[in-house]
Amino acid sequence: MIAPAEERGLRIAVIGAGLSGLAAARMLADQRHRVSLFEKSRGCGGRAATRRATQPSGETLHFDHGAQYFTARDPRFQRCVQTWAERGLVAPWDGRIGAFDGDGFTPAGQETTRWVGEPGMSALGRALAEGLDVRLETRVRPPRWCRGRWQLSDEAGQELGRFERVVVSAPAPQSAELLMDAPRLAAQAACVDYTPCWTLMLGFAAPVPLAFDGVFVNQGPLRWIARDSSKPGRSVPAGNSPGDAVGGSSVGPAAEQAAGSTGRGDCWVLHAEPGWTRKHLNDAREEVEAAMLAAFAALVEMAGGALPAITWRQSHSWLYSLVETPLEEGCLWDPALGIGACGDWCNGARVEDAWLSGEALAGRILAAMASG
């Protein structure tokens, strides 16, 4: 699109600042609509998220604890990614990828181009939200249809405004709740299932002796492991820390001394297998971390090495990690009510699917306006 389709801009609310919500918001704002983006967390990007941690040496490590990377297969999304690359928002990850089948390691997927945000996956969400009216840490109640408009309020009951169109961009179970005044759409969202995922982030005093930077694990409690410090722009030397590291657990004075002597650490992200996560979803965090760490140590031992001293550790549980049963609808839209939903759960299970779903819903809104 090269020009606005309409002279009069609508007031449009987008609930959720994941990549699908950002895609819809950007397209609608580019068409001069008055878009307000509401996000319950502290940042934009959803599962394209990054944690930062400071090593005892002062080095800053970046952990992509949600989406590890993304691919671009659809020509429309390829054009987006190329634009992001030219802006310095993303870069190819040339890490060595392998697979573990229980007996040994083999190379895997070398022909695939894997893209990552730079210097972290969350950088993409922050950049795409620039210039938009974004209200973070705002949890929205289900929108209510009132006198031809959608009334929004936060969980405290404070009014957020009345809108002519609403875009819901949240995991399917949450979208089903937000769509209660659009029962047909709510019923479709309620049919979608997710797998949960325990994630463990680890900082080490020295590089982990493993020949691969990412491994698909096909046995045991782990599903995926990745050396995030091998991704472009991830490791910041001591003295150049941006100063916004998040808290984690430091592991003893000996580990701190080792980290200070090497000057360069290593950071890894471990994702647990979905079935194992379901079984242990409510276990004590310390027990989960110990089991995942033991499985990782066993993998490194299989490769003939041992884990270096751990200098930083933190876990995170993703309740809505991977979509099991995507609708393959592209997006959901009710033209009579002027409300719709988008997300990877509408279109597939990849970052690409989330972005294309958001663009699809924005296109439905624009097309409905053009047809009167």
Rank of each mutant, 00 (worst) to 15 (best):
A3I: 05
P4V: 09
G18L: 02
G18D: 08
L19P: 04
G21V: 02
R52E: 10
F63D: 12
D64E: 10
A67H: 03
Q82L: 11
T83S: 12
V90Q: 09
P92A: 15
F105T: 01
E111V: 10
P119Y: 09
L128F: 04
R135N: 07
L136R: 00
R141I: 08
R141M: 10
R144C: 13
C146M: 07
G148V: 11
E155T: 06
R162P: 10
P171H: 13
A172I: 05
A176W: 05
L179P: 01
L179H: 10
A182E: 13
R184M: 07
Q188I: 05
Y194F: 11
W198E: 02
L200M: 03
L200K: 02
A206R: 14
P209T: 08
N218V: 02
S229G: 14
A255S: 15
V269G: 03
V269K: 01
E273N: 00
G275P: 02
R285E: 12
A291W: 03
A303M: 11
G305D: 13
A309F: 07
P326D: 06
E329C: 14
E329I: 06
L337D: 15
L337H: 14
G338N: 12
C342A: 12
D344S: 00
C346M: 01
A360C: 14
A362V: 13
A370F: 03
